[in-house]
Computed example of a mutant assay.
Amino acid sequence: MKRLAIFASGSGSNAEQICLYFLHRDDVEVSLIFTNNPQAGVIKRACKLQIPVVFFDKKTFYETGKIQQILQNEGIDLVVLAGFMMLVPPFLVDAFPKRMINIHPALLPKYGGKGMYGHHVHEAVVKAGEKESGISIHYVNHHYDEGDIIFQASCDIDPSDTPDDVANKIHKLEHENYPRVIDQILSGQP
């Protein structure tokens, strides 16, 4: 059985979609959800789905090997970032080469990097008058949003679209594609 760990800092809608996608599979399991935010919506979603949640703080994440040890002890095959706001420390990235992925709400390399997440991205896309946006699923490396791209999907942006309109289009792409791409990675396809 392939085992996933999801890291999330926010509402957890992508994490929930991933969990639901694999819920009735006997070959893949979402084993743990990690969060650095004790107020994160992902906690309620994980509890509803009976998936254990691991809480950690900044010091634990960056200055100890505790998270890496938990991941390795649980036999995690793939680490999935789904709305996780912290830069993963190099030692943790290096422990999971090509086994740690992230989703970004834009067509990288545009609108990536530190501070470019969530609504900040959608506001920048609208302000720039872009005709399209989308999602990028990529491997995690030592820098924000610079890992090798695995998959991208795009959507049209209308001149009348607000950042909220763009966000809705992007969420739809994320929910449709992230679980499927994870499944492909686990089966060795990408």
Rank of each mutant, 00 (worst) to 15 (best):
H104Y: 08
K98N: 14
D94E: 15
L81R: 01
F84V: 05
K66I: 15
L81T: 04
G65E: 14
L81G: 01
T60P: 00
V88L: 06
H104I: 08
L71N: 09
E63H: 13
D77G: 11
L81P: 02
N102G: 08
T60M: 13
F56R: 05
P105Y: 05
Y111C: 02
V79Y: 01
P105K: 04
Q68L: 13
L78V: 11
F84W: 08
Q68K: 15
I67D: 02
M100C: 09
G83A: 12
V79Q: 01
F55C: 09
V88D: 03
L92A: 10
Y111N: 04
M85N: 02
L71I: 13
V79T: 01
N102K: 08
P89D: 09
P90D: 14
M86I: 00
P89S: 10
V54A: 10
R99S: 11
G75M: 12
I67H: 03
Y62F: 14
P105V: 06
K58R: 14
D77T: 07
K110C: 04
K59L: 05
L107Q: 03
A82E: 05
F61A: 02
P89C: 10
P90K: 15
D57W: 09
K59H: 11
F96I: 08
M100Y: 07
A106K: 03
K98T: 11
F55K: 14
L107R: 05
Q72E: 11
K110N: 07
P89H: 09
I67W: 06
R99W: 06
G83M: 12
